[in-house]
Design a binder for these strands. Structure first.
Lengths: 148, 148
DNA sequence: TAAGTGACTTGTGAAATGCAAGTGAAATCG
DNA sequence: CGATTTCACTTGCATTTCACAAGTCACTTA
C-alpha cells in the first residue's frame, strides 16, 4: 500500500526512474496491455494469455499494480469466486507509453500484430481516444452494475 | 549478437512483448536516458549516475543493448583505455517512449526534475526534435573525429 | 618506471523467477 | 444433497538474476 506520500525509498527523484521502478519488469506492462486492449479482467484470462505468465508471478504483479494504484481488485457480486481486475485512471494513462513501445518495436523488431500497429500509426491521438472511451464506458457500466 | 532474423525465441509476436523483453528491467532505460539526455558515453559516468547501478549489471546491460542494436561500443582512438558508448538510430528512436514514461510518472508520482518535465509538457514534438538534433550533431562529429 | 585510470571480471549471498503441485471457497451438476 | 468443477490463488523447490565488494589488467600519466 503505497502512494505519493508514503512510497518507500526511490533510487532517485527522476520521473523516468519512478516509471522504471514501477513498470520495469518482464510482465507488468503485458498485464496492463491485456486489460487495456483485450479487455481482460480475470486471473484466468491473464494466465492463459499468450506469453504464459507463472501463476505466482501473476498474483504478485496484480498485488503490486494495485498497491501502485494502477488497477483495482474487486469481487464479482454475481459470482463470489471471481475477482474483477480493472484499470484505474492512472492505469489507463499508460496508453501513450504502450503505444510508443508498440511503435518502436514494430519499427525495429520483427513482430506480428500488424493490425494494432497500423491502427496506432494511422492516428495515434484517435487510438488513444478510443482506448480512453472504451475504458470510460466499462467503468461507468461496472459502477452501475454494482447497484448505484 | 542477435537481429531481426536470428533473435531467439520470443514469448510472443506482440510488439509490446518485444519491447518488454528488450527493455523490461530496472536499468536499461536509465542507461539510455543518461546517453540521450545527459550525453553520457563512458562506463565511469554510468556507474556514477544517481541510481548507482552495480558494475557487473552495467557491463551486462551494455552488452545486451549493443546486441540489440541500441548502442554501439567503440574504443576511443585518442585513449585506448576508454570505450565510447553511443546510441544508434534505433536507440534514439526510444525518445518518445522515455518522454511518455516521464510524463506519466510526473503526473501520477511524486518526482523531481520538473525542468525536464515542463520541457516535455510544453512541446513534446519540439523536445523530440531537439533530442534527435543533438544526437545527429554528435554522431556526425564523432564520425569525423575518427578520420573520415 | 611507479602510480594511477578506466573498464571491466570474479566471488558470494540474497532475492526474484519459473515450474509443478496443492488448497479452499464457491458454483454447478446429477 | 453430495460430488465434481471452477476460480483464484499458495507452497515448495530448483534455477536465474541481482547487489555488493574485491580484484584484474591494459593503458596512460607523472
Amino acid at each position: 500500500m503505497q502512494n505519493k506520500e508514503t512510497s518507500p525509498q526511490r533510487r532517485s527523484g527522476c520521473p523516468l526512474n519512478a516509471s522504471v521502478e514501477i513498470l520495469g519488469d518482464r510482465w507488468s506492462l503485458l498485464i496492463i496491455r491485456d486489460m487495456m486492449l483485450r479487455n481482460f479482467c480475470s486471473y484466468k484470462e491473464f494466465l492463459e494469455s499468450h506469453e504464459r505468465i507463472a501463476t505466482n508471478i501473476l498474483a504478485d504483479r496484480l498485488r503490486k499494480l494495485e498497491a501502485h494504484g494502477i488497477i483495482t481488485i474487486d469481487r464479482d457480486p454475481s459470482d463470489a469466486r471471481r475477482v474483477i481486475y480493472r484499470l484505474t485512471a492512472k492505469g489507463i494513462d499508460l496508453a501513450p507509453v504502450l503505444a510508443e513501445m508498440v511503435l518502436w518495436a514494430a519499427r525495429h523488431e520483427d513482430t506480428g500484430n500488424q493490425g494494432l500497429v497500423r491502427q496506432i500509426q494511422k492516428d495515434k491521438k484517435q487510438f488513444l481516444a478510443g482506448v480512453r472511451k472504451q475504458w470510460t464506458a466499462r467503468t461507468v457500466r461496472s459502477t452501475a452494475d454494482r447497484g448505484v
